[in-house]
Design a protein around this nucleic acid. Structure first.
Length: 275
DNA sequence: ATGACTTACAGGGTAAGA
């Protein structure tokens, strides 16, 4: 398979952000894009606009909140084949926070982990329960024998190096030891945090608060992550954050975050950029 | 700071986000 670029972008309202989304797709041309916080019912998903922009998609909407989608560039000839539209483990959970697709030989999970504020409280409890379900499902995915990417808004700042200054966020659900421990346990299964692996000593942010002039001060957090199992990690080539999208007028509070995986066969070290 | 924004839903003021 050729080199593939995979991105994750919390759009914070797909209707409000559609012009930005189309502008970003046009300019960066990711092969696969995982979207979160559609904030729209499934019937409101702008599939015709996306097809016109050269993308096929699967999506799972919800009124007002949540909502996830996986886009695949039509020219690849491998439209996303839906594998599931919820995490297993709780049939009563009605939040649209997970969708999974097969894209050629790749498996792509797109997730929007609960925020969990205020904590302590029921929302934080829900966050941790959801995280446990993700950890359990991820164990199966990791060992499926195919390259897997778990991409999305994890709502976890993994370490104090992933935030401009933890001081004013110490009570926030994103920095709690329980949240970080779940993330650590997930990685410990054998997942590679792609951006941190590519840039072990650089400050990387993917979210800047609307409050307090977060963007203008570069007061950011790294909470959007792309996790790779071994079959995918061996192909990891490049990655980055499309900060220019955060600088547009009326932006999402997140910026698109992306990686590229070199071509080659699963389980083999990449030998080059391919064609 | 139960925030200093922003979105959805609605058609004003809540709920939610992180």
């Amino acid at each position: 398979m050729p080199t593939v670029e995979i991105a994750t972008f919390n759009v914070n309202g797909i209707r409000a952000r559609l012009p930005h989304l189309l502008q970003w797709l046009e300019r960066e041309q990711p092969d696969i894009a995982c979207l979160q916080e559609l904030k729209a019912v499934s019937e409101g998903f702008p599939i015709l606009d996306l097809r016109a922009a050269g993308y096929e998609a699967i999506w799972h909407g919800q009124r007002s909140w949540n909502g996830v989608a996986i886009l695949v560039k039509s020219a690849r000839g491998t439209p996303p084949a839906e594998a599931r539209r919820a995490l297993p483990g709780d049939p009563d959970d009605v939040h649209s926070r997970y969708i999974e697709a097969e894209v050629g030989e790749l498996v792509v999970g797109c997730l929007y982990l609960p925020n969990g504020n205020p904590q302590p409280g029921p929302k934080f409890d829900y966050k941790l329960r959801w995280f446990e379900r993700l950890i359990e499902h991820a164990a199966t995915l990791r060992a499926c024998g195919r390259p897997v990417v778990l991409a999305g808004d994890y709502n976890v700042v993994p370490t104090d190096f992933d935030i401009y200054n933890p001081r004013s966020w110490l009570k926030d659900a994103l920095l709690q030891p329980e949240s970080r421990e779940c993330y650590r346990r997930l990685l410990a299964q054998g997942w590679t945090d792609a951006l941190r692996t590519l840039y072990p000593e650089e400050r990387i942010y993917t979210f800047w608060d609307y409050f307090r002039q977060g963007w203008q001060r570069n007061a950011g957090l790294r909470i959007d992550h792309l996790l790779l199992n071994a079959e995918a990690a061996t192909r990891l080539h490049e990655g980055g954050v499309d900060r220019w999208v955060r600088d547009l007028e009326k932006p999402s509070d997140h910026a698109p975050t992306w990686i590229t995986l070199d071509g080659g066969r699963a389980g083999r070290a990449a030998t080059g950029a391919g064609s």
